[in-house]
Simulated scan of single mutants.
Amino acid sequence: MGFEGSTLVNWTAFAQARSELGAGFVRILGYFREDGVKSVAAIEAAMQAKSAAGLVIPAHTLKGEARQFGAEPLGALAEEIEMTARDCVEAQDTPDHLLEQIARLRPLFEDTLALLERESNPLVMRKPQGGGFGRRVG
Results as ranks from 00 to 15, higher is better:
1 M>K: 12
2 G>A: 15
3 F>P: 04
4 E>F: 15
5 G>L: 09
11 W>K: 07
15 A>V: 06
16 Q>S: 08
16 Q>H: 05
16 Q>T: 09
16 Q>E: 13
19 S>H: 02
20 E>C: 00
20 E>S: 09
21 L>T: 06
22 G>M: 12
23 A>C: 07
23 A>K: 09
23 A>V: 07
24 G>K: 01
32 F>W: 02
32 F>T: 02
33 R>K: 14
34 E>Q: 12
36 G>I: 01
37 V>K: 02
37 V>H: 04
38 K>A: 03
39 S>D: 04
43 I>C: 04
44 E>H: 04
46 A>I: 03
48 Q>V: 13
48 Q>K: 12
49 A>L: 14
51 S>E: 15
53 A>L: 15
53 A>W: 05
53 A>V: 09
54 G>F: 15
55 L>I: 10
55 L>Y: 14
56 V>A: 14
59 A>I: 00
59 A>G: 04
63 K>M: 05
64 G>L: 01
64 G>I: 00
65 E>M: 05
66 A>W: 04
66 A>F: 02
69 F>L: 01
70 G>T: 04
71 A>W: 05
71 A>R: 04
72 E>S: 06
74 L>H: 06
75 G>A: 10
75 G>C: 07
77 L>M: 00
77 L>H: 04
79 E>K: 03
81 I>F: 07
81 I>M: 11
82 E>S: 02
84 T>Y: 14
85 A>D: 11
86 R>K: 13
88 C>F: 14
88 C>T: 07
90 E>W: 07
91 A>K: 11
91 A>N: 13
92 Q>H: 03
93 D>F: 10
93 D>L: 11
94 T>C: 08
94 T>Q: 11
95 P>S: 07
96 D>N: 13
98 L>F: 02
98 L>H: 00
100 E>C: 04
101 Q>H: 09
102 I>G: 03
103 A>I: 02
103 A>Y: 04
103 A>M: 01
104 R>E: 15
105 L>R: 10
108 L>A: 06
109 F>I: 02
110 E>P: 01
110 E>D: 06
112 T>C: 03
114 A>I: 10
115 L>T: 03
116 L>M: 09
118 R>Q: 13
118 R>M: 03
118 R>G: 15
120 S>P: 00
121 N>C: 00
124 V>H: 08
124 V>R: 05
125 M>G: 09
127 K>M: 12
127 K>S: 12
132 G>D: 04
133 F>T: 08
134 G>I: 01
135 R>T: 14
136 R>K: 13
138 G>L: 11
138 G>N: 11
